[in-house]
């Protein structure tokens, strides 16, 4: 009986008793969720256009952030470092397309996947040899990101909202809206979706796969940079960040590998879910729930809805 009480009644009693604390938990879950969504977005972009699960997306986040900080430390002003980093991500995209994808066109997916694992280790090595392995501080203030916090006092309690988190959420919203418009309204976006549907047919109507792939990897690079700045500002910029990026995998399983809205909703589900579960139910299972919660949810989804919430249905006419 005690167990049942602890699972089904007690957490809600706690929530009811301290609504301000609940709000605080929800907010931090929301912020975590948007960041997961951002990472997942990078995966979705590349998966849609080339059918490849880009294992290197996590390291691209680290690499982008490291480049930004590294260039700033070389003495470039922050805005110039930012533009230069975008340039580096563009070069990386073109390089990947030239050296890896172009050679492997029409090979089985698993070979492309292996290639992205190779790319991961290449980028780790390159990043370490240029910028060194020790953690660095993100140049938060120099980029004009707000610091400090605002506190509210709802229900006679206290909720603290950090301005940096607000900036992260705003940035995520802007990026996602921008990408959605790009995908659905522009000529290149339409071509991207066409490539996602049928490579051969896209080739046959004169869409250049090479161009599309470079664009997609560049877009994923921009997303990686934004993610890197935000995660870097919350913790430090180090190679450990790429472990966080692996959280995108359960996000994608929940949201569906091919859906941008799916990546967002999936990210939010994981963000809210793991915070709430950790705070209110975590003590029942010992702490550290945050580490595995996402994967368990993903497992449940795999059992009951393998294409995810918003995954593209496989169109089959009968």
């Amino acid at each position: 009986m005690d167990i049942l009480y602890n699972i089904f009644i007690d957490p809600f009693v706690q929530m009811g008793n301290a609504p301000d604390f609940l709000l605080q938990v929800l907010w931090s879950g929301f912020v975590g969720g948007t960041l997961y969504s951002l990472i997942a977005l990078g995966f979705v972009l590349i998966f849609k256009a080339s059918g490849v699960f880009n294992f290197a997306q996590g390291i691209m986040v680290v690499f982008a952030a490291l480049t930004l900080v590294g260039l700033y430390n070389l003495g470039l002003p922050a805005w110039l470092a930012l533009i230069a980093t975008i340039g580096v991500m563009a070069l990386l995209a073109i390089g990947v397309e030239r050296v890896v994808l172009r050679k492997l066109v029409n090979q089985p997916d698993i070979i492309l996947f292996m290639a992205t694992i190779g790319l991961t280790y290449f980028l780790i090595g390159l990043g370490e040899s240029i910028f060194g392995g020790e953690p660095k501080k993100m140049i938060t203030e120099e980029l004009g990101l707000p610091s400090g916090s605002t506190s509210f006092e709802p229900f006679g309690g206290l909720v603290i909202i950090e301005h940096l988190d607000v900036a992260a959420v705003v940035m995520a919203i802007v990026l996602v809206t921008g990408l959605a418009i790009f995908f659905n309204k522009t000529r290149i976006g339409r071509a991207l979706r066409a490539v996602a549907d049928d490579h051969q047919a896209a080739l046959s109507v004169g869409i250049s796969l090479n161009q599309i792939w470079a664009i997609v990897w560049f877009a994923a690079g921009i997303v990686a940079l934004a993610t890197g700045i935000m995660w870097g500002a919350k913790s430090d910029v180090s190679f450990a960040l790429q472990i966080v990026a692996l959280k995108a995998l359960p996000v994608l399983i929940i949201g569906g590998f091919t859906s941008i809205p799916g990546a967002i909703i999936g990210g939010l589900i994981i963000g809210f879910g793991e915070k709430l579960f950790e705070i209110y139910w975590g003590s029942l299972l010992g702490s550290g729930v945050e580490g595995w919660f996402a994967y368990v949810i993903a497992l449940i989804f795999l059992l009951f809805r393998p294409q995810g919430l918003f995954g593209e249905k496989i169109i089959e006419r009968i």
């Binding site: 979706r193 049928d198 869409i207 593209e312």
Partner: peptide
């Protein structure tokens, strides 16, 4: 045929004008 299944018919036609 190889139409782009997830695009609308009109979007399919417009991809033809890519070049």
């Amino acid at each position: 045929r190889h139409c782009f299944g997830h695009l609308s018919v009109e979007e399919n036609l417009l991809t033809g004008a890519f070049t």
